[in-house]
Design a protein around this nucleic acid. Sequence first.
DNA 1: AATAAGATGAACAACGTT
DNA 2: AACGTTGTTCATCTTATT
Length: 459
Amino acid sequence: MNMESKNFSLEKDRILSILIDMGYQAEEAMRAINANGMDAPVADLADFICASQVEKGTCLSLREPPCQKGECSSSQQLTNSHLLKSKTELETRKRKLQQILEQKPVGRDKEVCRLPNPMIGFGVPGEPLLIVNRVLPNNAMGPPYFYYENVAFTPKGVWSTISKFLFDIKPEFVDSKYLCAAARKRGYVHNLPIQGRFQLLPPPPLTIHEALPLTKKWWPSWDTRTKLNCLVTCVASAKLTERIKKALEKSDGEPPANVKKFVLEKCKKWNLIWVGKNKAAPLDPDELEKLMGFPRNHTRGFRTTERYTMLGNSFHVDTVAFHLSVLKELFPSGINVLSLFSGIGGAEVALHRLGIPLKNVVSIEKSKTCHAVVRCWWEETNQQGNLIHIVDVNDVTPGRIAELIASFGGFDLVIGGSPCNNLAGGNRVSRDGLEGKESSLFFQYPRILNLVKSMMNLK
DNA sequence: AATAAGATGAACAACGTT
DNA sequence: AACGTTGTTCATCTTATT
């Protein structure tokens, strides 16, 4: 076998396994690849299979047409908010959001989800809801409720594909800088109610100085940042700190413009904070934990670089909790949660801090260290429910789901954020989009969600 | 052998100017 | 409308160090 046909065959296997991951039969997946070619987007292949299933009457109703969208405009302004911006600005925001919610795909190549500016989703704490009634398609309704998360900045077309596989619900894009001192631009697709949200108390500090008071003393006046950029998995080395120190020490007092520019650029790029005279350093894991909304020492006991990786890949607890807060009055006696790609348990921590009892949590996570973190937390917080760990998402078969549902009566919430590494801008090597090696695990989410839905509807 | 440090741009949105 | 400028980003891989 020559190299070219070997690569060809490898690529075919890869696409095939993605389609099988999505819950399709190997045979129909193969037919779709043969009919559409291997260059066709996976979404198209899935469409093809779905179409042929419809013809045969075997469609699992993965994608029913969305129901008639009602008017989403019966907006009502909540009174409170002294922070309320001018009325016209609020109206502008509402109008822009409405446009995004109603936007129709123009053509296959133009299917792009627009990002809202400001990135405040349906609203953030301290501001009134922008939309009070949003109408979801019938097939998107719970049970169970679901909540999916990923990075906002992706290659073009990714979010419209994600949306397409999740009942055409438009993502709610939110930047966590409205809830804490660090930016975190993320998209959330969910079928949760949006009225009656509340944030965790105490509210996290909104500025760097309040969040990290010790930096105040050393912060130069010409560094005007009040918010940190996105907290990621990599940090700058001590060498960069040294370079900055050296550059600043050449001048006493106000440094020249070119030095300022150099330093500020590095500070923004690497999220440095001022911890000493002329000393800009990366955040500690402890500080990351705090900024991400986790309890102190949540990831203690693991190597530093590992802690950076785990924390950088996590939910922002307060943002997620703000969205999940509506569940509190719906499930006063607690909930059963299916947590995909759990990581260090951002969802679990958020629910716990909201005071929602965790009855059964099925956590799917392949990283041993991540799961160890969640297990530790589970015991430290004296959880009364059951924590069930599944290592491989491929082991979540219809049979396994049926077993779990039979044992405790079904899931109330399916939550998770799938791997972003093939989507994230920081990736120079393999930013391959949704079909990338890890990010294609996204397709496991709708597969499993639809399994849970269909089995719970049988009951 | 395990761990940390260093080197490695591009894609995309937003915004201003021509 | 077209174009240039500015800014941000849940990272990977190789090499050095312990």
